[in-house]
Simulated assay, not measured.
Amino acid sequence: MKHLKSLGFFLLIFSSFFLIQCTTDPIPGPDGEDGIDGIDGVDGVSGTAECAACHNVGKSEEVHASYLFSGHYNENMDHDLENDGINEPLSQYGNRAYTPNGSLSCASCHTSDGYIDIVETGSTLFSGFQNNDDGGYPLYDGTQTITCNTCHNKHTSFNFEEDGKDYALRVIDPVTLLADNSVTIDYGPDNKTSHTCATCHQPRSTFDGAINADGTVDVGSRFGPHYGAQTTLLEGIQGAELAGYEYRSTDGTAAHRAGSSCTECHMGKSSGNNVGLHTKKPTETTCLNCHKDGSPSKEFLKADFDALEDLLIAKGIIEIVIDEDTGDEELVIISNKNMDLIPAAALWNYKMIYYDHSHGVHNPKYAKDLIQNSIDALNAN
């Protein structure tokens, strides 16, 4: 009996080896016939197709050709600083770093390097009022003019469909005003490229900041918002609004502000190179998108503006000075550390419209109110 059990156990072990051999080492059969080739897939979209829409020779030539007609390229200050009959370019001020509020300087908008520094670090490289001999950015030599690289650097996102096109601009986020950090200009996600414009085209001071404790106003030879009033006039803010008067189109309600933007008006399509695109000059076609009867006249404010100028001269607030070398007339502010509020406000509004250089078109209603109310207040004062 014991012998039979041993024999059964041996047969069980032997058969298990046999089964393992059969399953792990099969005898190969003949090769099968080749299968049919699959259908070729569809070619994918080129990885550079979207880039090539802008980054191509034709587009580059178009941009450069129109840019040659822009104020940024020509940079004419209309100031003959050397009395040699030649108007100096904006970059003449590139070697100066006057800092009225500790961060902003002339170089931050008058030079390429200064602009890049202030948008990347919040300040320019040096402070105080210095010549190039004392250090700082190079004097104007053709290298400090505003160029492509001044405003453009690299894309913040390549998901243009969801994030919108940023055109590789250095500034696309809303801009907090340097003269009043309680105000942030936000043109919205669809017009974020206009934030680049607002970086420099904003005032360097406010009227409220010039008012003394006794209610008088500190008026100096450079009184006014400087040549950056475009942003605030468009927004309908920071005019010297006098008590008792009505002011329309304020706080972003103007049609040009609510229904358009800097880039939509100033960089429209054009069949030529001398308007639209990178000239930053509005085109008739762009205006007709909204003004179906044709572009409105820029002369709508001239009579009132001239009337205010005459009043300011008559009241001894500004005067006409003749340049002994050129014979040209120049309006000069008569400085007064304690000017009464109403004449000072009228002067500020006059300078705001002058510095804006749109003749009030950026915000016609607000501009009209600032000038007309200034005239009425001066006549009643």
Rank of each mutant, 00 (worst) to 15 (best):
G215E: 01
S205H: 08
R170E: 02
G41C: 06
C151F: 12
K2N: 05
C200Y: 02
L301D: 04
L277A: 09
G114R: 01
I342H: 07
C106G: 04
I118H: 15
C151L: 14
M1T: 13
I353P: 02
N56P: 13
M77I: 05
D369W: 02
L178H: 01
F17S: 10
G71L: 06
T199A: 15
L341P: 09
N87D: 13
S260N: 09
C54Y: 08
D117F: 14
L242N: 01
G29L: 10
G252L: 10
K59I: 12
T156V: 05
L169Q: 02
L4E: 05
F17Q: 08
E264F: 00
A380Y: 03
A346N: 07
P30R: 03
D163L: 02
T124Q: 07
A97D: 15
N379I: 09
K298D: 14
G102V: 07
Y187E: 15
G41T: 00
I313C: 07
M339S: 11
A229K: 00
P100T: 13
G209A: 12
I13A: 15
S105T: 15
K281D: 03
D117K: 04
E309H: 14
I320C: 04
G44A: 13
S221W: 11
G188S: 03
E50H: 11
I371P: 07
P203Y: 00
E235V: 06
G215H: 06
A345G: 14
G102R: 00
F158K: 04
V332L: 10
V171P: 11
P225I: 10
F18S: 05
G224I: 09
D214H: 03
E324R: 08
A107P: 05
E329D: 10
I146Q: 00
S46Q: 04
G29C: 11
D40N: 14
D180R: 03
G135H: 10
M267S: 02
G209C: 01
Y137I: 03
T143K: 09
P296C: 06
V332I: 07
D293C: 08
S108D: 10
N274Q: 09
L331I: 06
A229Q: 00
N76V: 05
T206E: 12
S260K: 13
E309M: 07
I185V: 15
N132P: 05
Y167L: 01
N289F: 04
K351H: 09
Y247I: 14
L378V: 03
A65G: 11
F207I: 03
K337Y: 11
T193Q: 05
I237F: 13
L234P: 02
P296R: 03
N191I: 14
H201K: 10
